[in-house]
Simulated scan of single mutants.
Amino acid sequence: MMKPATLANHRPEPTSSISGDVYEALNATTDYLLETVYGPARLTVSNRQVQLAERLAVAILVDHIQLAGISFSIDRDDLPSLAMVQTATLLSRSWLTIAGNARPCASLNLQASESDRMIARTVAFSPYPNRELSDCGYMRNRIAEVASHIQPLDDWRATVRRLGQCAGERFANAADALIAGGAR
């Protein structure tokens, strides 16, 4: 039986059990974040939006393991990225939403391109339904289940690095970016 063509079907999976669980959780979370914002157009977005989703996925999983000094700063005019971060906040264990002018130091600032914003506007008027927020509970439980099998390390940066290494190169890159950009 042939599987439908999706990003998940084209990604090699790690071999060990915990690595496979971490990879699957990060991959599913990345896809969920992109699908929540872009719906069926999620495969057409720029690499920057995919990187934001990957970084958010790693940050969410590490948040379920231990507190980490990671923050994201999104401009209010960047509605797709803002929606993705708000969804990530719902998936997290302990994140806060902060409003105002103050930008935290050493934060990541990735913005959607104009074409990503156009895709999000088009999807908003699409006849196809995107995932409902009720799926958030399922995703959150799935992330918490994987996180429950991972022991926190002495420093959150080491935990982030270990998660990235377990899940392959693209998540290792996301982990490195979080450590460099989110460290205080």
Score class of each variant (00 low, 15 high):
residue 71 S to A: 08
residue 149 H to N: 09
residue 127 P to Y: 09
residue 90 L to Q: 13
residue 124 A to H: 06
residue 92 S to E: 04
residue 60 I to G: 08
residue 44 T to P: 00
residue 15 T to N: 09
residue 60 I to A: 08
residue 73 S to F: 07
residue 114 E to R: 12
residue 165 Q to H: 10
residue 84 M to P: 07
residue 124 A to L: 03
residue 21 D to I: 00
residue 148 S to N: 06
residue 67 L to G: 14
residue 68 A to G: 12
residue 73 S to R: 09
residue 146 V to E: 06
residue 8 A to D: 08
residue 17 S to Q: 12
residue 96 L to N: 07
residue 9 N to T: 14
residue 41 A to H: 10
residue 74 I to Q: 08
residue 5 A to Y: 12
residue 116 D to E: 02
residue 6 T to L: 15
residue 46 S to I: 01
residue 150 I to C: 09
residue 167 A to H: 12
residue 177 A to G: 14
residue 17 S to W: 10
residue 146 V to C: 02
residue 90 L to S: 13
residue 97 T to K: 10
residue 145 E to G: 00
residue 17 S to Y: 11
residue 58 V to R: 13
residue 98 I to L: 15
residue 101 N to M: 13
residue 184 R to G: 12
residue 126 S to Y: 11
residue 123 V to H: 01
residue 113 S to A: 06
residue 159 T to Y: 04
residue 16 S to L: 10
residue 48 R to E: 15
residue 143 I to L: 11
residue 182 G to S: 04
residue 123 V to D: 05
residue 23 Y to D: 07
residue 176 D to P: 00
residue 129 P to C: 02
residue 43 L to P: 00
residue 175 A to I: 00
residue 119 I to W: 01
residue 176 D to A: 14
residue 130 N to C: 02
residue 43 L to T: 12
residue 114 E to H: 09
residue 60 I to P: 05
residue 131 R to C: 05
residue 183 A to T: 09
residue 51 Q to I: 08
residue 38 Y to V: 03
residue 99 A to T: 07
residue 164 G to Q: 00
residue 26 L to M: 06
residue 17 S to R: 13
residue 171 F to K: 03
residue 39 G to C: 00
residue 79 L to V: 15
residue 13 E to F: 07
residue 29 T to M: 04
residue 173 N to T: 13
residue 84 M to G: 07
residue 155 D to T: 03
residue 46 S to P: 04
residue 80 P to N: 02
residue 180 A to S: 14
residue 152 P to Y: 01
residue 142 R to W: 04
residue 52 L to S: 09
residue 104 P to L: 05
residue 128 Y to M: 09
residue 66 Q to N: 11
residue 66 Q to L: 04
residue 116 D to A: 02
residue 58 V to A: 11
residue 181 G to W: 00
residue 7 L to R: 14
residue 76 R to S: 12
